[in-house]
C-alpha cells in the first residue's frame, strides 16, 4: 500500500482534483452543532473534523424519500423512474460509515438484488478519514477501528494536524493520478487512538448474551423511557426498512409512487390492514430493534449489524444509550450464569 504525506492546507486542492472523477460529497456544517453530507460546491465549506453527520451516508444510496414511478390514473399506466449512474466520490468518510455501506450492500443485494441501490452504488469511490471519538462513538467495541480501511479507495490518517494519504485500491490510484503528491515525512504507523471501551464484552460474545436476553426486564425499562419518535432507526446507518406510498396530484388524474424510510420503533410498523398489530407494545419494538443489530443478521453473517456510530444514542431525545442497554443485558446475563453455576 502506498502512502504519501498531505498537508491540511492541500486538502482543498485534493478535493478539486477528485472533482475530475465526478461529484464530490463531503461533510458540511448544519445548524448550530451538527453536520451533514452534501455535494461540495465550495471546497472551503468541507468540514474535516466532525463527530458524525445527522443522517448517515446511506441517504446517498437509499434516499430518505425516493420516487419509484409516475402513474396515470386515467390511463392506468405507469412510467419507470430511471436511476442515473453518476460517478461520485464520497470524501472524508469515517470507518464505521464505510462499514455500514458494506452491510447495506448485503441487505440490498442479497436475495433479490435491488437495481436502484446497485446503480447508485456502482461507480462510487470512497475517501476515508480518521476521527477523534466523542462520548457517543463505540465503533471500536463492535470491531471497527478508526483506521479500518476496508471499502475505502483512499484514506486520510491525521497525524499532528496533517495527513498521511493511503492509496488502498486501484480505483484510489486512478483517483489521485496527476495529483501532486509529496513523499511521506511522518512515520507510517500510528498508534491506536484513545477509544474508551463502551461495551464490556467482545462483540463475538454478544449473540450469546442476546440468546438469553429475550425475556429480560431491561426491555421494559427502556420502553418506559422511550417516547417512540423513531429517531434511532431513522438515523441508523444499517437500518433499511421502508414504506411505500402513492401520492396523487390535485387534478386526481396522475401521481407518483414513492418510498420513504420507515422505523420499526413506530407503533404502526407491524400493523396489517385488518387492524392486527404484531408488535403492538413499545417493549416488543425496543427489543426488535436491538435484535436486528446484534442477533438476527449477526447469527447468519457473523458480524454485528451495528457499526458504533453512536447516532441512535446521540440523537435520542430521551437519552437512551445503546451501549448502556447492551451492558445491562451483559450484567443480567452474568448474574444468571452465576445462579446457574450455584445451582449446579
Amino acid at each position: 500500500m502506498e502512502c504519501f504525506s498531505l498537508l491540511r492546507s492541500d486538502v482543498p486542492a485534493l478535493i478539486n482534483h477528485l472533482g475530475d472523477f465526478g461529484e464530490v460529497i463531503a461533510p458540511h456544517g448544519k445548524g448550530d452543532v451538527s453536520y451533514s453530507f452534501e455535494v461540495v460546491k465550495d471546497n472551503s465549506e468541507v468540514v474535516l473534523d466532525y463527530n458524525r453527520t445527522l443522517l448517515p451516508l446511506k441517504k446517498m444510496f437509499l434516499p430518505p424519500v425516493e420516487k419509484l414511478m409516475d402513474f396515470s390514473l386515467k390511463e392506468v399506466t405507469y412510467e419507470k423512474v430511471d436511476v442515473a449512474i453518476t460517478p461520485r466520490v464520497f470524501f472524508a468518510v469515517h470507518s464505521y460509515e464505510m462499514q455500514s455501506i458494506l452491510r447495506l450492500d448485503h441487505s440490498m443485494l442479497s436475495g433479490s438484488a435491488e437495481s436502484n441501490y446497485f446503480k447508485r452504488r456502482q461507480s462510487s469511490r470512497f475517501v476515508g478519514i480518521s476521527f477523534k471519538p466523542d462520548e457517543f462513538h463505540f465503533s471500536d467495541s463492535v470491531g471497527i477501528a478508526i483506521e479500518d480501511m476496508e471499502g475505502f479507495d483512499l484514506f486520510l490518517n491525521e497525524v499532528d494536524g496533517d495527513f498521511q494519504l493511503y492509496v488502498i485500491t486501484d480505483h484510489g490510484q486512478t483517483l489521485i493520478d496527476g495529483f501532486d503528491r509529496k513523499e511521506l515525512t511522518t512515520p507510517e504507523i500510528v498508534d491506536g487512538r484513545e477509544f474508551k471501551k463502551k461495551i464490556r464484552y467482545h462483540y463475538n460474545r454478544l449473540p450469546r448474551v442476546f440468546q438469553y436476553a429475550y425475556h429480560s426486564d431491561v426491555w421494559a425499562d427502556v420502553a418506559s423511557q422511550c417516547v417512540g419518535c423513531g429517531a434511532c432507526n431513522l438515523t441508523c446507518p444499517t437500518c433499511f426498512c421502508f414504506d411505500v406510498q402513492d401520492e396523487v396530484t390535485v387534478t386526481a388524474e396522475d401521481g407518483m409512487r414513492q418510498r420513504n424510510w420507515d422505523s420499526c420503533m413506530l407503533s404502526t410498523f407491524a400493523e396489517v390492514a385488518g387492524g392486527e398489530n404484531f408488535r403492538e407494545k413499545t417493549v416488543n419494538r425496543t427489543r426488535h430493534r436491538l435484535y436486528r443489530k446484534f442477533k438476527y443478521i449477526t447469527d447468519e453473517e457473523g458480524l454485528p449489524w451495528c457499526v458504533g456510530c453512536g447516532r441512535c444514542t446521540a440523537f435520542c431525545p430521551a437519552g437512551i444509550s445503546l451501549p448502556d442497554i447492551v451492558n445491562e443485558l451483559i450484567q443480567e446475563d452474568e448474574k444468571a450464569q452465576y445462579h446457574r453455576t450455584v445451582r449446579v
Binding site: 433479490s112 421502508f242 414504506d243 404484531f278 426488535h288
Partner: peptide, 24 residues
C-alpha cells in the same frame, strides 16, 4: 401466516417475525 408484507422481496422489513421474513 399473515403479516404486513409490503414489498414482497425481503427488503422493507414490515413482515419480519423475529429474524425471519414472512414474505420470503
Amino acid at each position: 401466516l399473515e403479516r404486513r408484507m409490503k414489498c414482497g422481496v425481503g427488503k422493507c422489513g414490515h413482515c419480519q417475525i423475529n429474524g425471519v421474513y414472512c414474505c420470503q
